Simulated assay, not measured.
Amino acid sequence: MANLLVKPRGKHGHVTHVTPESAGWTYVGFDLHRLKPGETVSEQTGDREVCLVWIAGKGRATAGSDDFGSIGERMSPFDGPPHALYVPAGSNWSVTADTDLELAVCSAPGGGNHHAKLIPPGTHPPETRGKGSNVRHVNNIMPEDDGSAHSLLVVEVITPNGNTSSYPSHKHDQDNLPHESQLEETYYHRLNPPQGFAFQRVYTDDRSLDEAMAVEDGDVVLVPKGYHPCATIHGYDLYYLNVMAGPKRIWQFHNQKEHEWLLNA
């Protein structure tokens, strides 16, 4: 199994590259580009669909024959909801930075009759989940009920300092609907202020997989299976961008029984 903690390879350019092959799984890919003004990144999607997420900064985008103009508003992932752009399989895309730009490229197998689509802030209403020190704030980018993709599910979460998230512990590694869906997942983490850190544990019931990681700004955590809670320390807010995909575009999770009581506490 691949190392579950992926560190960025530098501070500029193509700093993160996760493929199904490098992760040792089947569906999810994740890339991160950090561009200076005037720099361009472009790709063919091939047999995969893509969701571009403007983590921070502004950039002009095209997809296929469509010109979407300048996209982006926030200068930090902690400054409100994102702009995003869906690009189907069998197409191409290009983004040229207008400012310093941090661009995430979320990918999974494509299919169906989908079209390039801008996903501006407010497309899906924000959510607040949890209580007390388990509160976190959710921006759905491509949820399962929007019908705009073949397999991609994309969401970002802000966890206030000192809080837990993706908790009580849950998993989605069994193709056992309607009880549970099988989804691979990546977590792209950012901290505010950036010198902070958080923790994430990925583990199964039988502990055949059990890894606890100290997560720093810019790290990616791979979740091939098992439970995957995280927690940030006092003084540092945690942002993460989740990419999920599997054999069915459904997010149905199973709570760990030992901690499920917390939902009713």
Rank of each mutant, 00 (worst) to 15 (best):
S165Y: 09
P194K: 14
D219C: 02
T186N: 07
Q174N: 07
D79F: 11
G69F: 08
V95M: 06
G46L: 08
N192Q: 13
R129S: 10
L153A: 03
Q44A: 13
L222Q: 05
T16N: 06
H259N: 15
H179C: 04
S169I: 00
G110L: 02
P20H: 01
H137L: 11
C230F: 11
Y240M: 02
T232E: 04
L241I: 03
N92S: 15
T159M: 11
D66T: 14
G246E: 09
P178K: 04
H12D: 13
I141P: 02
P8S: 04
H33Y: 15
P109Y: 02
P20E: 00
L85C: 08
N255C: 08
P109N: 02
Y236M: 06
Q200C: 00
A61N: 05
G112H: 05
L222E: 05
T204I: 11
H150D: 09
G130L: 07
P8Q: 09
G110K: 00
K117T: 14
G162L: 13
C230Q: 15
V95A: 01
V220G: 04
R129P: 07
L85P: 02
R9H: 13
A63Y: 06
E39D: 13
T16V: 15
L183V: 12
L101V: 08
V135M: 11
P120T: 00
P77C: 14
N113F: 10
P37A: 05
P126Y: 10
G110A: 02
L262A: 10
T128P: 05
K225I: 06
D145Y: 15
V6P: 04
N3V: 10
E39G: 01
A116Y: 03
P247W: 08
A104F: 01
G122H: 07
C51E: 10
D66K: 15
A84H: 05
Q44T: 06
A104K: 01
S148E: 15
F30N: 00
C230H: 13
N255G: 12
P121L: 03
T19L: 04
L103K: 00
E39P: 06
G226K: 07
S133N: 14
P81H: 09
I250V: 14
H172C: 05
L52Q: 00
E73D: 14
M75Q: 14
W251R: 06
A63Q: 05
F199M: 13
P81C: 07
H259M: 15
G162V: 11
L103P: 01
G235Q: 10
P143E: 09
A212I: 14
Y86R: 01
F253Y: 12
A84R: 03
G46Q: 08
C230L: 15
T186K: 01
S70C: 13
Y203E: 10
S76L: 07
S181P: 00
Y187F: 15
A245T: 06
P121S: 03
S91V: 00
E102F: 01
